[in-house]
Amino acid sequence: MDIVEQIQELILTYGLNILGAIAILIVGYWLAGVISRWVQKALSKSNTNEALLRFLGNIVYYAILAFAGVAALERVGVQTASFIAVLGAAGLAIGLALQGALSNFASGVMILLFKPFEIGHYVEINDTFGEVTDIKIFSTILLTREKKTVIIPNGLIISDKIINYSKQGYIRADMVFGIGYDDDLLKAKRTLEELVAADERVLETPAPRVAVLELADSSVNFAVRPYVKIEDYWDIRLDMPERVKLRFDEEGISIPYPQHDVHLFQSN
């Protein structure tokens, strides 16, 4: 009878606590799922990046589970103070060991939240120009004009200058063409304006500009500045010089090259 009574006493003493702990875990598991989905749904209305949505949802989910686990341990009589202290010390050690990774992670969260650039934008980061093909939590991937894949840690991106060429939806293609001092300046200007106006890639707004840039040593230089879509930038930069040369040849306009006049004086 003593053994039966002891068993009954243990059941009465710890049984309810164990049932309470199980109930806490079940409720915590349910709340973790509900609150995690609610957070993701609320953030999705602000056009938050999908990867960041999932990450923040997971943080909320596992934080609630951890809280429920600690509460369940306390319910069954386990002293959790020392346990939490050990976890805190371990977390500090891991944080120091992964300091660089955590910096990249924090920078990735800032990029996804504040959106200095998006996938598909053409940017210049850390002296590298390319198209943003992916934005990850720890790094950003660029595809250069040479089709090279460049992976840049997000920590470097946040600490460096970011030039976004796609933010406005268009970009100005700056080009310079020179003519000789003996050529007809107004005719050359009209020719350049006609070439720019005939190119379908050139945007009407903002309006393109053709103007005399400088009177150089061997040439009169024109600044030709059309605005184009970002995807047309390199095409027009490569096509326009050929068109200008062929049209100048037809119009009899010269494109000078650097030269020096040498004067010889004969002494008696």
Rank of each mutant, 00 (worst) to 15 (best):
M1Y: 08
D2L: 10
I3T: 15
V4R: 11
V4Y: 12
L10I: 09
L12H: 12
T13S: 09
Y14W: 15
N17I: 05
N17Q: 15
I18N: 04
G20H: 11
I22E: 03
A23G: 15
I26K: 13
I26V: 15
V27E: 09
G28W: 07
L31N: 07
V34R: 14
S36I: 03
S36Y: 05
K41R: 13
A42F: 02
L43A: 11
L43E: 05
L53F: 06
F55I: 03
I59Y: 01
V60L: 12
Y61T: 00
L65Q: 02
A71P: 00
A71V: 04
A72H: 01
A72F: 02
E74G: 08
E74D: 14
V76I: 15
V78M: 10
T80I: 13
I84D: 06
A85K: 11
V86P: 00
L87N: 01
A90W: 13
G91I: 09
G95P: 01
Q99D: 07
Q99E: 10
G100E: 12
L102Q: 07
N104P: 03
F105R: 05
A106M: 12
S107Y: 01
V109K: 02
L112V: 00
L112Q: 13
F114Q: 07
P116D: 11
P116A: 10
G120P: 07
Y122S: 06
V123G: 03
I125F: 03
T128N: 13
E131V: 10
T140G: 05
T140M: 01
L142V: 03
T144M: 06
E146A: 09
K148T: 11
I152P: 06
I152H: 04
I152S: 04
N154E: 14
I158C: 02
K161Y: 04
K167E: 13
K167I: 09
Q168F: 01
Y170D: 02
I171E: 13
R172M: 08
R172G: 05
M175R: 04
Y181K: 06
Y181H: 07
D183W: 02
D184R: 09
L185N: 06
L192R: 03
E193A: 08
L195Y: 05
A197Q: 14
A198Q: 12
E204W: 00
P208C: 03
R209N: 11
V212L: 12
V212E: 13
L213P: 00
L215H: 15
V220A: 12
V220Q: 10
V224D: 02
V224H: 03
R225W: 11
Y227H: 15
Y227S: 11
E231Q: 14
D232P: 01
I236R: 02
R237Y: 06
D239R: 14
M240I: 11
P241M: 07
E242V: 14
E242K: 15
R243I: 01
R243A: 15
K245P: 00
E250V: 11
I253H: 05
P258L: 04
D261Y: 10
H263F: 09
H263W: 03
L264K: 06
F265S: 13
F265L: 14
S267T: 12
S267H: 08
S267P: 04
S267N: 13
